[in-house]
């Protein structure tokens, strides 16, 4: 006869709660995305989540795992959600669908499902899309609402997403653009910083430019997760710290390179630092390991953005550091109580 082992008391955290809290923490940023860039994000999210749940259910069935037990943990939902937040809002409908499938089927279940994936599934999905469909992934970002010539409805977004260029190229042109990071990086070759800052995208200030608001709200959500002790400070601080440091060192001249404020607030940095890099499954585990892991991501983000071909680099930076996580873990084991202190 066997009785369950101690402890008999359990804390009040559960996987579902962790996933739900992370999801909830992205909501302010998500709201801001819709506010500034239109309904495309909502459509993305619905497409991605629906694809994720269906794919997850089918795979669980194929793997003969209890479907509801695992579907209920919310991990597939969160993966799809984070991917949807990272995708260009006005990309064709099959972009979120393919990305989510890649994330759930390839990055997650082919490696053994929840807890066994060495790479961040959402970022695998993102990387697959960026490599396979570079045009869709770089040109179909939303124009901030304040800069658009006319207001666009949910229906317009849906038309762009589901019908696309073939049906209404003018509408697509009127609603999409590249990201500010991309624009700055490309245009600084021909213009100087003062001229660039005079462009509508950069001159309209805090309230309209949008990206800063979204990043700020992601930061807020991240602080909430820290307060709830769902994540620790190590990874976000290391990511933001190393990125800031490098940007200050190498981007001190805004006439040459993207300045530090754009690095921190103009792209997916905040989303990456608080919500993507902190994915525990694929990150390093010890506190020191997390610092190394985060610093590596920060450095790679800067390096790829500055000297690489891609305008944003969170996905590649995270994936590259995922490779390194087991090694980092191996070399950053915490000191065990009673082991000789140096």
């Amino acid at each position: 006869m066997l009785t369950p082992s101690s402890p008999h008391a359990v804390g009040n955290q559960s996987v579902q709660q962790v996933m739900f809290s992370v999801w909830a923490a992205t909501l302010p940023g998500f709201a801001a995305l819709i506010w500034f860039f239109g309904w495309g994000y909502l459509i993305n999210a619905v497409l991605a989540v629906a694809t994720a749940l269906v794919a997850e259910a089918i795979i669980l069935r194929l793997r003969r795992r209890p479907v509801w037990f695992f579907l209920g943990d919310g991990s597939a939902l969160l993966t799809a959600w984070l991917l949807a937040l990272a995708l260009p809002p006005l990309a064709p409908w099959w972009i979120p669908v393919i990305g989510t499938l890649a994330a759930i089927v390839f990055a997650k279940h082919l490696y053994g499902g929840l807890g066994n994936n060495p790479f961040n599934p959402a970022m695998v999905g993102y990387a697959v899309l960026l490599i396979s469909f570079p045009v869709e992934m770089t040109t179909r970002w939303g124009i901030p609402a304040a800069l658009a010539t006319e207001a666009h409805s949910l229906l317009d977004s849906a038309r762009v997403i589901f019908a696309g260029l073939r049906v209404d190229p003018a509408l697509v042109d009127g609603m999409t653009m590249a990201t500010p990071l991309d624009v700055y990086k490309n245009d600084i070759a021909t213009l100087d910083a003062a001229e660039l800052r005079a462009e509508p995208l950069f001159s309209a200030g805090w309230r309209v430019y949008g990206w800063e608001w979204v990043s700020g709200l992601y930061l807020l959500g991240g602080l909430y997760l820290l307060w709830r002790r769902i994540i620790t400070w190590h990874i976000p601080v290391a990511v933001l710290g190393s990125l800031t440091l490098l940007a200050l060192l190498f981007s001190w001249n805004p006439d040459l390179r993207v300045p530090v404020d754009l690095h921190l607030l103009g792209g997916a940095t905040m989303l990456g630092a608080f919500f993507i890099a902190t994915d525990p499954v694929s990150a390093a585990t010890s506190n020191r390991g997390k610092l190394v892991f985060g610093a590596g991501i920060g450095i790679l983000i800067y390096v790829i953005r500055t000297w690489g071909n891609y305008p944003d680099a969170v996905a590649f930076a995270v994936l590259l550091m995922n490779f390194a996580a087991p090694l980092i873990d191996h070399y950053t084991r915490p000191r065990v109580y009673g082991e000789g202190r140096s």
């Binding site: 929840l114 807890g115 525990p280 499954v281 506190n287």
Partner: peptide
Amino acid sequence: LPTPPPAKPCIRCGQCEQVCPAGLL
């Protein structure tokens, strides 16, 4: 003291490591 719910796979969240008084993994 509610009966613990069925175990799920480890998500490597590292909470255990944060609370281990012996500094183990």
